[in-house]
Each structure stands twice: as structure tokens, then as C-alpha cells.
């Protein structure tokens, strides 16, 4: 059920990016899609009653060089978290790129409306 709600969020972003006329609204739709995908990837690795994948001194035995079994059996998945962490910073960079394209278009055509921009071409 949380997966379906997350997919509904993705579909709202897709609707916003496809239907709206304002360029900033399209950028906002792409942002909503990014949030939904990041949430879905992290939710795939969640365990009920899990702990964060960070080892502290009490959970490591230096004599036999092994992590405690309680940590191994209870930790959530670290791999989607690592992938999402890079994806968030990339989304900020691509947001800056899209916004700069919007500003440049506004300076040339004087509007954010993409149907107007289509008519003014040529």
C-alpha cells in the first residue's frame, strides 16, 4: 500500500510535466517525480524494527573481527541509500540547469508560456 501511494505521487508529477503550460510548473513536476523515485528506492530496503546501517563500538568485536549478529539481522539495506544519496545531489545540479534555461527563455521571449514560445519561433 505505501508503494501505491508513492506511485500516485509519481503520477501526479508526470501529469504536471505533461499537461501544464508554465515552464516553471514543468520543472516542479520533474522535481516531484524525483522525490517519488527516491522514496520508492529507499522504501524497498526497509525492515520493521530495523536500525540504521552505522556500526558503533558496542556492535563490533575486535578479537574475532566480526560484527554482532544483532546488527546483521536488523540493519536496513545500505545499497539503495548509497545510490539515492548521489541522486539527490545530481537532482540539485540538474535543477539549476533547468532553471537557467527557463530564465534565458524568459529573457528572450518575455513569458514562461510554452505555447507562446512555440508561436514566436521564426
Amino acid at each position: 500500500m505505501p508503494y501505491a501511494l508513492c506511485f500516485l505521487l509519481f503520477m501526479l508529477g508526470l501529469y504536471c510535466a505533461v499537461v501544464k503550460k508554465n515552464m516553471v510548473k514543468i520543472v516542479i513536476g520533474i522535481l516531484i517525480m524525483e522525490y517519488a523515485v527516491n522514496l520508492f528506492l529507499v522504501m524497498l530496503g526497509f525492515r520493521v524494527g530495523g536500525i540504521a546501517p552505522i556500526i558503533d563500538r558496542a556492535q563490533y568485536d575486535p578479537v574475532i573481527q566480526q560484527v554482532a549478529a544483532g546488527f546483521v539481522n536488523n540493519s536496513v539495506d545500505p545499497l539503495p541509500q548509497a545510490l539515492v544519496l548521489t541522486s539527490i545531489v545530481i537532482s540539485l545540479g540538474s535543477l539549476a540547469l533547468m532553471i537557467s534555461i527557463c530564465i534565458r527563455t524568459y529573457e528572450k521571449y518575455g513569458t514562461f508560456d510554452i505555447t507562446q514560445i512555440r508561436r514566436l519561433k521564426g
Binding site: 540539485l92 545540479g93 537557467s100
Partner: peptide, 20 residues
């Protein structure tokens, strides 16, 4: 790397707004 690049893009955005 991340700090210098993000600082650069924010500075560029504000510079552009001042010029226009």
C-alpha cells in the same frame, strides 16, 4: 567539489538577475 560548484551556480544566477 560539491561546495565550490554549488557556490558558483548560485553566484551566476544572482549575477544574471542583477544584469537584466
Amino acid at each position: 567539489l560539491v561546495g565550490a560548484l554549488l557556490f558558483l551556480v548560485i553566484l551566476n544566477l544572482s549575477t544574471f538577475r542583477r544584469d537584466t
